[in-house]
Design a protein around this nucleic acid. Sequence first.
DNA 1: CTTGCATTTTACCGAACGGTCAACTAGCAT
DNA 2: ATGCTAGTTGACCGTTCGGTAAAATGCAAG
Lengths: 201, 201
Amino acid sequence: MNIATDTRSRIIAAAKPRFHSRSYANVGIQEICEGAGVQKGSFYHFFPSKRDLVMAVIDEFADEWANGFVAEAFDPALPPMERIDYLIDAAYFWQKSIKQVHGRMLGCIFGNLTLEVSTQDDILRAKLLAIFTRAKSRFKETLEQAVATGTIPPLDAGLTAEAMLAYLEGVILLAKAQNDPELLYRLGPAIKTLRIELSGG
Amino acid sequence: MNIATDTRSRIIAAAKPRFHSRSYANVGIQEICEGAGVQKGSFYHFFPSKRDLVMAVIDEFADEWANGFVAEAFDPALPPMERIDYLIDAAYFWQKSIKQVHGRMLGCIFGNLTLEVSTQDDILRAKLLAIFTRAKSRFKETLEQAVATGTIPPLDAGLTAEAMLAYLEGVILLAKAQNDPELLYRLGPAIKTLRIELSGG
DNA sequence: CTTGCATTTTACCGAACGGTCAACTAGCAT
DNA sequence: ATGCTAGTTGACCGTTCGGTAAAATGCAAG
């Protein structure tokens, strides 16, 4: 089982950077198998379909983030609004380091996949939506604490959290269009100016 | 030349909704030719490559917007900040009507293509970037007029314009993940809360 | 009537696509 | 030693991919 798991994770490891740097449709299973040093028959022993592979890839990216930058950023020890600064910083430095290594801004894999596949595959769309929903919750909790501590005036934490997530994705999209992570540095901090007021009581 | 032009524009007309509703890689030239009632050889008489077709499609979408909603929204007769409201409204109603007809939120073709191809094709990326740059200019002029008329306090119009554009794209992305244009209605108006201050006199 | 050009048709190219299958290997428990 | 199973192999499926080339049209000017 150890070796078997190794094959499976080698496949995922080969698929991750490819899906991130190109697109779902543009990366073939053949190429992933070559990258992983695995035969196509083996691939289909572990993954019923290409979609199942990309789901595993999404999970790995999500875990990586949740246990990495996101865990650091949303540290309860930090003042609430500083956590948001931290997250923006982390996104900036991550994209920047990827560009240094890879030569290109790759952007957010979740955003990339969302725009590519969500009209064509509701299961993938649901999976990606779940990740955005979790991210939104992090923002929301943070905003609620910022309100509770009097750091910011009361607001609609749920909607503002969603707005902030949208802004982050949008900035990454625009930065990718410019192939320049510095846009994250310039535009990122403005995320804290976003506000949606509480409506009706 | 009339009939010839007709063939060319039939090809573009067949390609537009397909690229918009799916993706660049997922739409084949064969299918576009069938949709246009044209032979593949004819296609390559008018377009040297698939990339040239999608460039023409981008141009048509851009013109459509520039002469439609965008022209209406950025009407100099409107108070500056109301133009931004108008644009958000237009995006909302457009996405909503598409969903009613098509059954799905398709989002912004420029954002869709940007995330799909901009790591793989610098010519397409440049084309899409040019469109975003034009859009940013519209926002910037509007903000400058809002500042000049005293509607809003002074700010960095260029950066705030870029932030607003990013936010709009991000909201559309998130709405597409939810397949629900109503998110545009809820989050859209907060675009006016975005502010990036002037740095260093 | 003919030359020339733009357009269209049809057949075709090699490569890649996602996915399947049967045969084979290795390890382990009975 | 035997049988079972997880894993692996490599050949193969039909289809589609973007793109090409040559021959056939239609049409307009000389």
